[in-house]
Design a protein around this nucleic acid. Structure first.
Length: 574
RNA sequence: UGCCUAAUGGUGUAAUGGUAGCACUACAGAUUCUGGUUCUGUCUGUCUGGGUUCGAGUCCUGGUUAGGCAACCA
């Protein structure tokens, strides 16, 4: 059932370009993460765009790690990023690294110096910042701005040979210190980094290119046609174009015909980044939460990371569907967390087997039930027999939810109450409460009821309607299960908009760990999950009336751990 | 006193000069062996002044508001 969805503005641009025959009607995109953290759902939005455009228009999307800053980057992240993209179901053409182009980039820098377009500055970072001016005031030129070409060449080579201390010199493009776009005020294009080896090139380089000098150039070398990124790069686009103008058609590119006057050039387009209520989408803040132990790790089920969502029980399909729903524009907005939850419920409601678990158990004794008990056969999903059945033990003593019994009930309460209405035990018999018992402190300990032996589900006598159906498990056979009940990470809608420390805004109730009593089938249906690409394939369940749950990797043979993916909607107000 | 973006219900998006639609949320009703699901219905919207046009959310123009831009980060 493919619903008609109009093209987003990037797709329209691509279709126009195709129609006009731009870049020989070739479509090539790239997903360019910096390997300095785990992928989060904001990245997924970019991934769906970059890979989606390539898929839709028979192009190719390459994965390119933007690894120009060895101080922050690590192979740990390179691996997790690839795993997450594969898990999401996308396929790249090649894996590239910005560091693949360090030689070409260095040559380009030399070329710029020779053409008088770059110079070595030996002022401090503070001095350079001061001379940059402000958005409303022009900058002032560096005293080193007019150094002779030979001297620039000699110094830049000395920088690369490791003869200059970190921070003592930088290479700047010589553009325009008075440009209204601050990025044109002689941007730094190379800096010295000797303190950290690069995760791929080791100690080969002592100078590393800055983003503005690496990104567009890498796009050009690879033959990228549509370089799609988020809105904060809009101000960089003129510089992106400026650099490419300096060498387009004069330097090799994988794009065809560069030598023969092809019109090829990469172009940058920007869309709005993803913000979701009650969470943060900043790698820096996430890293802080992880490092300070405020969450259990990058894959903590409360985190908006891909691995966190996965552990929470989100499926790749649901995450992609969510991205499809929110669309792409140039308006900076804030997506309601409720939409993400709605999407995962949609995805699981027709597939997740139902199971009973009692979270706040109280004993129910069926006083007129004779015999040792019986086995009930229930469909895993009501009305969906192809999803199989399971067996549930039934006997005289059961656990039910404490909240399903009220000694004094008003008419809006549909469930058990002494002398009250008939209530269906899910998949079993109709009962009627007759009384209850309390301990010395007045806590309810036992509910007494009688059952109608002819009212069993699936039998003719069982067709009688009841207003309510309640959950139960049989006392002897049920299993204790640890349930981790997750809720929104932050207590406020937009933590980034608040004054003060974002850590003070964490939701203190974002995790509640409880033990519940689940029906035996949860244990018997459990199996060691199959591991694909290092990722355990998980089973999703719906605990009736409680929500969707997924088996957590902390589970072992003795101890079952379930994570709540999402609660069920609850229209019953007290 | 700069430059760049953007502005459609509570939220996210569509309408490409021709009936302002969809999804989420909220609310109401029906159905239901999950107070879930499903179904039906309701509420709420083109930032603003002027102009072009038979006709403007859309084009022009002047405002207003919001966000971004001054890392040896990406």
């Amino acid at each position: 059932m493919e619903e008609d969805k109009s093209l987003n503005f990037i797709e329209q641009i691509v279709e126009n370009d195709l129609q006009e025959g731009k870049n020989d009607r070739r479509i090539q995109t790239r997903f360019p993460p910096e390997p300095n953290g785990y992928l989060h759902i904001g990245h997924v939005k970019a991934i769906c765009m970059d890979f989606g455009i390539a898929e839709r228009y028979n192009g190719v999307c390459n994965l390119r790690f933007d690894d120009t800053n060895p101080v922050k980057e690590d192979t740990e992240y390179v691996d997790s990023i690839q795993q997450d993209i594969r898990w999401l179901g996308f396929h790249w053409g090649n894996v590239f690294y910005a560091s693949d182009y360090f030689d070409q980039l260095y040559d380009l820098a030399i070329r710029f110096i020779k053409e008088g377009k770059a110079y070595v500055d030996e002022q401090t970072a503070e001095q350079i910042a001061e001379q940059k001016g402000t958005p409303t005031e022009p900058g002032t030129p560096s005293p080193y701005r007019d150094r002779p070409v030979e001297e620039n060449l000699r110094l830049f080579e000395a920088m690369q040979r490791g003869e200059i201390e970190d921070g003592k010199m930088v290479l700047r493009a010589k553009i325009d210190m008075a440009n209204p776009n601050m990025h044109f005020r002689d941007p730094i294009i190379y800096r010295i980094i000797t303190t950290h080896p690069h995760h791929r090139t080791g100690r080969k380089w002592n100078v590393y290119p800055m983003y503005d000098f690496a990104h567009g150039q890498s796009d050009y070398f690879e033959g990228v046609t549509h370089s799609i990124c988020t809105l904060e790069f809009v101000v960089h686009r003129p510089l992106y174009d400026w650099f490419i103008d300096q060498f387009v058609g004069q330097v090799p590119s994988n794009a065809a015909d560069w030598k023969t006057g092809s019109d090829y050039r990469p172009r940058q387009y920007e869309f709005n980044r993803l913000n979701i209520t009650y969470t943060v989408m900043s790698k820096r803040k996430m890293l802080q939460l992880v490092k300070e132990g405020l969450v259990a790790g990058w894959d903590d089920p409360r985190m908006p990371t891909v691995c966190g969502l996965r552990r929470r029980g989100y499926t790749a399909e649901a995450i992609r569907e969510f991205i499809r729903k929110i669309g792409y524009t140039k308006v900076e907005g804030m997506i309601d967390l409720g939409l993400l939850e709605h999407t995962i419920r949609e995805s699981l409601k027709n597939t997740a087997p139902r199971i009973c678990a009692i979270f706040d158990p109280v004993r129910l004794v069926i006083t007129n039930y004779e015999g040792d008990g019986e086995t009930i056969v229930a469909e895993n999903i009501d009305g969906n027999p192809e999803l199989g059945t399971r067996q549930i033990p039934f006997a005289r003593e059961l656990y039910i939810e404490r909240g399903d019994f009220l000694e004094q009930a008003d008419k809006n309460f549909y469930r058990l109450s002494p002398g009250g209405r008939e209530v269906r035990l899910k998949n079993a018999y109709i009962i009627q409460a007759t009384g209850c018992e309390h301990d010395a402190d007045g806590n309810l300990t036992t509910v007494y009821a009688t059952y109608d032996p002819l009212s069993k589900s699936g039998t003719e006598g069982g067709n009688r309607k009841t207003k309510a159906t309640i959950n139960w498990v049989e006392c002897q056979s049920c299993v204790d299960v640890e349930a981790r009940l997750y809720d929104r990470l932050f207590a406020v809608e937009n933590p980034s908009a608040e004054e003060g420390d974002f850590r003070d805004l964490l939701n203190p109730d974002s995790l509640k760990v409880v033990t519940c009593k689940a029906e035996q089938s949860l244990r018997s249906e459990m199996h060691r999950p199959e591991v694909v690409d290092g990722i355990a394939q998980v089973n999703h369940y719906q605990l009736l009336k409680q929500g969707f749950f997924v088996i957590d990797p902390d589970t072992d043979d003795r101890h079952i751990v379930l994570n709540r993916t999402a609660s069920l909607k609850d229209n019953w107000q007290k």
